[in-house]
């Protein structure tokens, strides 16, 4: 009898471990609750390195650059294969709004590996568009082929989400069950803070157009599973002749998309899904994006947008409302 009581009280010695660093042109932060520091920073960093050598446009030797520089295509490694598969699925699901072959356009608009503020002319865009379409990609087994040599891919709209999932999988592999992984503002959560048992609190950054308003933190949601990512037009942009040129380029038109949306925050079961859809939702505009999310059982989204009168407003899909008010 006594023994049973003892064993019931023999609680786990919870410790909180925090790892952070720089990767993929941004920063990452991992917090996990466990008895021991089974996952170390060097383990995380070497995983991130391997992701980079597969998915990063910034590494000349990366597998993605090998594909882009190839005439006909290459054999993919496991990371690139996963991400390309998901990209093709998302391309279909978004009716072509999410399209990884957007790379030549991203480059032309100055948001690629080499940054510029030079606005391309209509002829340049017209010449690029025939190279842009996921239909020009063929995936057979683990070989990715292209119909034209000028077809190049850019995974920046999805690779961070995927990387977050890979880091989460790494934690799981080492038996960690309570964690939050964040890379460049893309987040994946599982379990709860220990020993308190509280859910993880996630802040959704609000784009603050008025520099002196304090309410940067628009909303806080509490999660014990899933992933959340945000896409916004409010930071990555430059101005040219009084026009805001945002990094969100519509692959169908070849031009940066202008609509009322300022940011979209997407919740999904994994970060690759959330990340894949956030940019496409930005391009859809509020009405269409909201309808799109409502149709999808696996997505929830929160939108910040500009009203016709210029004021900032927010709204959310019904599933996201439930997350905010459980």
């Amino acid at each position: 009898m006594l023994l049973v009581i003892f064993s019931a009280h023999r609680s786990v010695e919870w410790k909180r471990f925090a790892i952070s660093g720089a990767a993929q042109g941004t920063t990452y932060s991992i917090i996990y609750y466990a008895e021991d520091s089974t996952v170390t920073k060097s383990l995380i960093d070497s995983e991130l390195m391997s992701l980079d050598s597969s998915l990063s446009l910034y590494k000349p030797y990366s597998r993605i650059n090998q594909f882009n520089n190839s005439i006909k295509g290459i054999t993919l490694d496991k990371h690139l294969l996963q991400v390309v598969k998901k990209s093709i699925d998302t391309y279909k699901a978004t009716n072509g709004l999410f399209d990884i072959t957007v790379q030549p356009l991203v480059h032309a608009w100055g948001f690629g590996v080499t940054k510029s503020r030079y606005v391309p002319d209509a002829v340049a865009i017209k010449n690029i568009l025939p190279c842009v379409s996921t239909k020009l990609l063929q995936l057979k087994g683990n070989r990715l082929s292209k119909s034209k040599p000028c077809v190049k891919i850019d995974l920046n709209g999805i690779a961070q989400g995927y990387s977050v999932d890979i880091l989460a999988a790494l934690l799981e592999k080492y038996g960690v069950k309570n964690y939050i992984v964040e890379l460049g503002g893309e987040i994946r959560v599982k379990g709860r803070k220990q020993p308190s048992g509280e859910k993880m609190k996630i802040g959704i950054e609000s784009p603050n157009e008025d520099a002196f308003e304090n309410h940067l933190l628009q909303k806080i949601i509490e999660l014990d599973k899933g992933a959340i990512t945000t896409s916004g037009s409010y930071r990555k942009y430059y101005e040219s002749k009084g026009q805001k040129i945002t990094h969100l380029i519509n692959p169908k038109t070849g031009y940066p998309q202008k609509n009322e949306l300022i940011s979209v925050t997407v919740y999904a079961k994994d970060a690759i899904t959330a990340d894949a859809y956030d940019n496409a939702l930005m391009l859809m505009g509020l009405k269409q994006a909201l309808a799109f999310v409502e149709r999808r059982k696996d997505l929830a989204a929160y939108f910040v947008y500009k009203n016709a009168n210029g004021s900032i407003a927010d709204t959310a899909s019904s599933a996201f409302l439930k997350l905010m008010n459980p």
């Binding site: 932060s29 503002g185 996630i202 802040g203 945000t230 990555k236």
Partner: peptide
């Protein structure tokens, strides 16, 4: 430090 993470295009550094 009220939150454990922040989702957004940029974060406080």
């Amino acid at each position: 430090e009220t939150v454990d993470g922040v989702t957004g295009a940029t974060k406080i550094e």
